[in-house]
Every structure is written in structure tokens, then in C-alpha cells.
Write a protein that binds this DNA or RNA. Structure first.
Length: 333
DNA sequence: ATGCCGAGAAGGGCGAGAAA
DNA sequence: TTTCTCGCCCTTCTCGGCAT
């Protein structure tokens, strides 16, 4: 995929013959290198005897994609024109090409520049896998994953990513596996390919689900069944045990606050109005038993009946909410 | 058309080393 | 000393190819 994209980019570049362009027509803004040019490198290029190789320019914007130092060196030589190859793609692709050019040859980008570039690529190409972005930006895939997590709502709407091999892989295949399990249970005679099509997974995954069911195992592999059942499974052990207590037993106010804090960090909730309303409501109940007792003790006697009735009605509303959400969980399980 | 197998790539976890 | 980043390992996934 990336190779194909690059090949297309290269073909686009190759189709254009190298031409001489007025340096004054070129734009040098929006470079991935925030620290500007290196004077020593410019100096070294300017005194070189051999002609400078053509620079790469984004034709629609006339922005220099690759060759900023060569432009400065040409200016230092007193040239008013420079050899240029044009790139015709989008601005986002031009930026990717600029980052890649700076990573693969010439003066390497600083670590901060590479991370900034990765963040921009993740935003402009959210469907690219961490490894694909990492290979362009010249940083580790894990670092790209961290950057992606840090971007608000970056992965909330994504269900799958495209790898360097051009294959589409789900970010979380648990839902597809559960679907497949249901389909197999309802129609044991279906072929793997039919199951795969209906569940939206690959035939091999369908085969794995079927094998697991035949062995009497959970359709989800160990890691997935853990993470999908307990979204906080990746948290450190002390926090996870607190969360588990909140799920399986009557939690304390402190346990509530741990769980609510975790929900507050979820972009899927905090980035929508209804999500924020829900978080505010949930947050009200994070007070501890002592605080509850203090509230109860201080309810004026003449208000007790009204407050009790309202509390009852609110409790029914929360119960209904729990039932409906609980139903959704079992539907997907 | 189907099931199976292997190759290659994905993401997560974790320890080691580098950088601040 | 702390934080960050990398690289390795493991598990999981998709897809192409092959035999039936």
C-alpha cells in the first residue's frame, strides 16, 4: 500500500521533466523542520563543484517539499533559478513526502520535528497504521501509538486501519468474532466464507472462531476477551482491582471516582454534549458514604418526603438506564 | 466454492538504553 | 534520577496460494 502510494507519487514526479524555475516563485513555508535551515549545511552545498540535484516542489502551492537547503545554497551561489521536479498530489501527501524525504536523506529532522510530523500525518491520514506513519516519520511505532492516543477523538471513529501491506485490519476484532459466534450458533451449516462475509471478518478468523466454539472455548482469544470485558484491563493493577470492585460488588465512593475518572478520559464521552452530561451526572455520585450521611442528616424534616420521592423516581430512572445499557452489553456479547 | 496453510504485518507488553 | 524511545517478542489478523 505505502509502496504503491509512493510508486504513484514517484510516477507523478517522474512524468514531469525537470525544469528551471525562478527561486523567487518558490514558497518555503510549512516545512517539517521547525528549526529552519542549517547554515553549515547550506554553506557546504553552495561550495560543492557538482550541480545540485533538482529539488521537489508541490506544483499547486509552489511549496518546496524537498530541497530547502539546496534552494538556500543556490541563492548563496547567486543563482536566481533552480532545477525543479514537480509533485501534483494533495497538500497532505506533499507534507508526507516532505517528511519522508527529510527522514530518508539529507539533514535528519530533530526528534521533536519527527513527532510533530507524525501527529500531523496521523491527523491527515487517520486510516494509516502506526507502523506506516512511523516508517515515514522515522520514529518508533509505539511512539506513533502514543501520539495517536493523545490526539482528541483521533481514533474514536476508526474501526480499522490500513497496514503497509495495504491490508485492512480491525482495531478491535472482538465485535466481529462475537457476531461470527452468533451466526455459527444459528446456522451451523454455513461455510467459513459465508460466515466471514456476514460477520465482516476474514475467513481465517471465522475458522478460528468456529474451532474455538467446537473446542468449547470462548470465541475471543485470551487477550481480547480480557480487554473487551474489562476496558480498564490495561490499567495498573491497583486501579484495575478498584474498577473490578465497582463492577462486581458494591463500590465505595473512592471506587466510583476511579471508574468515573477513567470514563472522563474517554474521548468518545467527553467530546459529545450528551457524553459530558452523563459524566456530570455520574460525577455527582462519586461522593463517599460519610458525605451521603451528612446530606441525609441535613435534609430539613419538611422536605424529607419530597426528597425521598424524588430519590425514588431518580433511582427508577437510573435502574432503567442500567437495564437498557446492560441489554446492549449482552446483545454484543 | 471450500477449507487449510504459510507469509507477512499489525498492535500490545516489557525491558534496556539514551536523553533531558 | 526520571522520562522517553526503541527494539524484541508474542499473539492475532488478513490475504494469497494450493489441494480437494
Amino acid at each position: 500500500m505505502r509502496e504503491m502510494a509512493l510508486q504513484r507519487e514517484q510516477e507523478q514526479i517522474d512524468r514531469q521533466t525537470c525544469v528551471e524555475v525562478e527561486i523567487s516563485l518558490l514558497s518555503t513555508v510549512d516545512s517539517p523542520r521547525t528549526s529552519g535551515e542549517d547554515p553549515d549545511h547550506v554553506e557546504a552545498l553552495s561550495v560543492a563543484q557538482s550541480p545540485l540535484p533538482p529539488i521537489l516542489v508541490h506544483r499547486p502551492t509552489m511549496r518546496v517539499i524537498d530541497g530547502l537547503h539546496r534552494v538556500r545554497a543556490a541563492e548563496l551561489r547567486g543563482q536566481d533559478k533552480i532545477a525543479v521536479s514537480f509533485f501534483e498530489g494533495s497538500e497532505a501527501d506533499a507534507f508526507v513526502l516532505a517528511v519522508e524525504s527529510n527522514t530518508m536523506h539529507g539533514l535528519p529532522l530533530s526528534k521533536a520535528d519527527r513527532k510533530r510530523a507524525a501527529a500531523r500525518i496521523v491527523t491527515s491520514h487517520p486510516q494509516w497504521s502506526d507502523r506506516m506513519v512511523a516508517s515515514v516519520a522515522g520514529i518508533a511505532p509505539g511512539t506513533v501509538a502514543d501520539i495517536r492516543r493523545g490526539l482528541p477523538g483521533a481514533s474514536a471513529a476508526e474501526e480499522s486501519r490500513i497496514g503497509q501491506d495495504g491490508r485492512v485490519r480491525p482495531i478491535n476484532a472482538a465485535a466481529g468474532r462475537r457476531n461470527a459466534a452468533k451466526i455459527i450458533a444459528g446456522n451451523p451449516g454455513l461455510s467459513l466464507r459465508q460466515i466471514a462475509r456476514m460477520a465482516g471478518i476474514s475467513p481465517e478468523t471465522a475458522r478460528d472462531v468456529r474451532s474455538r466454539l467446537r473446542r468449547g472455548e470462548d470465541p475471543l482469544p485470551g487477550r481480547q476477551s480480557r480487554t473487551s470485558a474489562d476496558p480498564g484491563a490495561k490499567l495498573p493493577a491497583p486501579q484495575r482491582s478498584a474498577g473490578d470492585a465497582a463492577v462486581h460488588g458494591r463500590p465505595s465512593g473512592q471506587d466510583h471516582s476511579v471508574v468515573v475518572e477513567r470514563l472522563k478520559a474517554d474521548p468518545a464521552l467527553r467530546l459529545s454534549e450528551t457524553g459530558r452530561t452523563l459524566l456530570r451526572l455520574l460525577n455527582l455520585h462519586t461522593i463517599d458514604a460519610t458525605e451521603w450521611q451528612r446530606i441525609i442528616d441535613n435534609v430539613p424534616p419538611h422536605c424529607s418526603g419530597i426528597v425521598a420521592r424524588l430519590a425514588d423516581e431518580y433511582a427508577v430512572m437510573w435502574s432503567e438506564l442500567a437495564l437498557r445499557l446492560g441489554g446492549r452489553v449482552t446483545e454484543t456479547a
